Amino acid sequence: MNQTSGDKAAASTDAIILAGSRPDGDAMADSRGIAVKALIPVADKAMLAHVAEALLHHKAINNLHLLAQDFKPFWKHFDTKFLESDERVKTHKSSATIAASMNDVLSEDDARFPVLITTADNVLLNEAMIGEFLDAAGSSDIAIAVVEKQVLLKSYPASQRTWLTLRGGQYSGANLFYFGSPQARQILDYWAEVEQDRKKGWKILTIFGPWLLFLAVTRMLTVDQIAARIGKRLGLTIKIVRMSQAEACIDVDKESDLVMVEQILAARG
């Protein structure tokens, strides 16, 4: 049987989970007296455990890298202490920002590409999502997962998300990213500039010049055309992956998200 480029990428892919704390703390964790957000229980299991198990159980994932400021809370917690003894799990102390932390990990001598990147609050991540994303990412330098508005609202009409409106559709970001080559690291310079404004969809486009921003806000470009223009400027192949599962863009950012996620997990059984 012939392998597609997506199959080859998925054959050996490392994964990174961003499991650190925000500098100013997290309201959900603080209100529960929990050390870090990643340990908030969702359906009676710490968020990080949901995500780590989904990745470690997937045949495409090789090593799992955890980024956090302090790992002691994880090793002491019943749901996540197994990660300390798993030889596939590697730990990396977070820097001041996500972009800096990512750059530190991916610039190490033993860093492996490709790598899938997600967050500890991406609790609904499952085997199908991981496979779909990696297969679609293929041989790209960078892949970014999104969910189209109609896909989400068809299944969850009450869901409140931040939408980026472009020619041809409205999109919400999913916490799934793919770096297929070391060259992809250069996008981290731009990531650092918009990190504090991640909910402002237009912010990143200002970095690539007023003309691109103008074409975007006037809806003269599709999301794929924007990715192509940014990729051309950076010398990278950037792919936008439209996820078929609405749940791909539902993470646990607020209390209402937690309620919805627990309902979805209960329905999954």
Rank of each mutant, 00 (worst) to 15 (best):
199 K>E: 10
174 A>R: 01
238 I>L: 09
213 L>V: 02
215 L>M: 09
130 I>Q: 00
169 G>Q: 06
242 R>E: 05
201 G>I: 05
4 T>I: 05
19 A>C: 15
20 G>H: 05
179 F>L: 14
254 K>L: 08
17 I>W: 06
29 A>V: 08
45 K>I: 08
49 A>F: 09
135 D>F: 01
98 I>K: 13
15 A>S: 15
140 S>G: 11
23 P>V: 05
191 W>N: 04
136 A>V: 02
49 A>M: 02
169 G>C: 05
19 A>I: 08
82 F>A: 01
165 T>R: 10
82 F>Y: 13
12 S>D: 15
111 A>I: 02
48 L>R: 01
148 E>H: 01
240 I>D: 00
76 K>I: 10
161 R>I: 07
241 V>R: 00
152 L>Y: 04
255 E>P: 00
51 V>M: 07
115 V>N: 08
234 L>Y: 03
195 E>D: 13
125 L>D: 01
88 R>Y: 04
162 T>F: 01
85 S>V: 13
151 V>P: 00
222 T>Q: 00
226 I>H: 00
139 S>V: 05
153 L>F: 12
144 I>V: 14
20 G>M: 12
42 V>H: 14
175 N>Y: 13
148 E>D: 10
175 N>I: 09
201 G>H: 11
143 A>Q: 00
164 L>I: 07
202 W>N: 06
189 D>E: 15
58 H>Y: 12
192 A>Q: 10
252 V>N: 01
172 S>P: 01
103 N>T: 07
142 I>K: 01
100 A>G: 11
144 I>E: 08
10 A>Y: 06
128 A>F: 10
125 L>Q: 07
181 S>W: 02
